[in-house]
C-alpha cells in the first residue's frame, strides 16, 4: 500500500468508486510525510475533506489529485467525501 524509495515521499493511493473510498481504512506510519494520490473513478466530482487533517480538495470526475499529509502523531484521522458524505467515509490510522 505504501510505496516509497529511499529519498522520496511515500505515496499512498486511494480510489473513489461509486462514492466509496477504497481502501476506506489506511494504516500509516507516524512522523512521516505522505503523498496521497487520490483517483476519482466516478464521473461526478467529489471533495476530499478531513477536519482532523485540515485538508479539503475538490477532485473532478475521472481525474486524480495529490494531497500531502503529515508528519502526524499516532491517532485516528477520519476523512470523508463532502459531496457524498453518507457513503464516502474513511479513516487513516497513524501508528
Amino acid at each position: 500500500m505504501v510505496c516509497a524509495t529511499a529519498s522520496a515521499t511515500p505515496v499512498v493511493e486511494i480510489t473513489i468508486k461509486d462514492h466509496l473510498f477504497y481502501p476506506a481504512e489506511l494504516i500509516l506510519p507516524a512522523a512521516t510525510k505522505i503523498k496521497l494520490l487520490i483517483h476519482n473513478t466516478d464521473p461526478t466530482p467529489e471533495e476530499f475533506e478531513s477536519y482532523e487533517l485540515n485538508r479539503e480538495k475538490v477532485i473532478v470526475g475521472n481525474s486524480s489529485a495529490v494531497i500531502f499529509i503529515g508528519p502526524l502523531k499516532s491517532g485516528t484521522y477520519p476523512f470523508f467525501g463532502e459531496f457524498y458524505p453518507k457513503t464516502a467515509q474513511g479513516k487513516i490510522l497513524v501508528k
Partner: peptide, 13 residues
Amino acid sequence: VQLTQVDWIKQTA
C-alpha cells in the same frame, strides 16, 4: 493551508 496541502509550505504539528 492551501500551500501546506501541496507541500509548498512545510507541515508542522
